[in-house]
Design a protein around this nucleic acid. Structure first.
Lengths: 216, 216
DNA sequence: TCACTCATAAGTATTTATACTTATCAAATA
DNA sequence: TATTTGATAAGTATAAATACTTATGAGTGA
């Protein structure tokens, strides 16, 4: 690699942000920003002419956003090391990015040390998640963990029926599926409502989802 | 600290696992396992007599599990650095652990290098998440990211009513809350069912949760 | 202005759900 | 053995939801 420095490409639609980050990164001897793009299209074109070690890629951009750009880039260059830059609250996109093969995730309010660590980490073949992001991710598990295991003691039959209720079957249909009378399903349903302290179907479905009795 | 090595406490109910990990860690010059416990209670008692730098704490244990133990320990010693050890599939507990103040998370199938990195990282005041865990966490966002923005075009009023339906209110009650007739709510509900391709309340609740229109 | 959507209201008929009840039988359990 | 629990079934009555229908006024946009 060119004069022993790692080649970095910076993709972000805000010129000011690019300039700032370039200044900060160029202070480190082992990195050099050799290319910049302001949107996904430009980035993909540039990629064909300018080989780089690591790409720092913004997620929210005009023309073509970082997600699509990353997917296309990694399709063409599967070994490309991409680190995404995102704002707080864009956690929803991480799954797509991981699927596409992105190696690192930085929040834009990370400090420069974290950026360097991330670059080094992905160059060494690892991955990097910014600390704030990690805690966001874990915090997102809140609802599932808090509600888990509050399980009420439903019998197997009741559980079976509850699941069918959640799938949208009427008591009549449930009776047919289980080869029992609709009236029996009525009774089971009433028992389930009582046991779960639910008032109606809507409550039941929420209960079942909270307690992970059904997928959604 | 005693002969320049970091003092580690190891808490796990499996003797074999403790022995193995002790051997592995003692190969590194900078660590020393100075205390071991086989459950949460033992761990808490030991903590009062044996000061350590870092605790490696199993989550699934008899008597008192790692979650409760970590909460109690950190209440008494807020600066204690705890790294939890868990099996794949126990992600649900991470939120509680983060809330309690646990600094690191390792999967039990991590390699020893990762364990060392985690210990060093938390000693330096940082945090550590094992790589496999990270990808599990991000993958768990799957359902939310995939289902997001499949939004159907519901009017504001319809959305308002859908949310009340999910909370378990009957059409009568919804009418009373919104100062409109029950029949109007009937009509809105029918329109919502049509727009969302739902058949009944159960389907509606699942739809709303999938599309993040309601908390659960 | 005309067309369109939205929120509102209402009628009729049918289907479901819910709240009460009682009852039988089998299996598990004390 | 006696008791309890779970699954089954059913009757009666009310409440709610659903599928159809029509209609009016407010607001939006071409």
């Amino acid at each position: 690699m060119n004069d022993g420095k790692y080649q970095i490409m910076l993709v972000d639609d805000h010129t000011l942000f690019r300039n700032g980050l370039r200044m900060l990164l160029n202070n480190f001897n082992n990195f050099k920003i050799v290319a910049e793009a302001s949107n996904g299209k430009e980035f993909l074109e540039l990629l064909d002419t300018t080989p780089v070690d690591v790409v720092l890629l913004d997620i929210a951009m005009p023309e073509m956003d970082g997600i699509e750009a990353a997917q296309l880039a990694l399709k063409k260059y599967p070994n490309l090391k991409i680190i995404t830059l995102s704002m707080y609250g864009e956690e929803d996109y991480y799954f797509k990015m991981v699927s596409a093969g992105v190696k690192g995730f930085l929040l834009k309010n990370s400090d420069i040390t974290e950026v360097c660590n991330a670059i080094e980490s992905v160059i060494e073949g690892g991955s990097f998640f910014s600390k704030e992001l990690l805690f966001n991710l874990v915090s997102n598990l809140k609802s599932s963990s808090e509600s888990h295991k509050l399980d009420t003691e439903l019998s197997e039959r009741e559980l079976e029926i509850l699941i069918l209720i959640c799938k949208g079957y009427s008591n009549q249909e449930i009776g047919e599926q289980l080869f029992i009378s609709k009236r029996t399903v009525d009774k089971h349903r009433a028992n389930i409502l009582a046991k779960t302290n639910c008032k109606n179907t809507a409550n039941l479905v929420v209960f079942a989802i909270k307690n992970k009795l059904v997928e959604f």
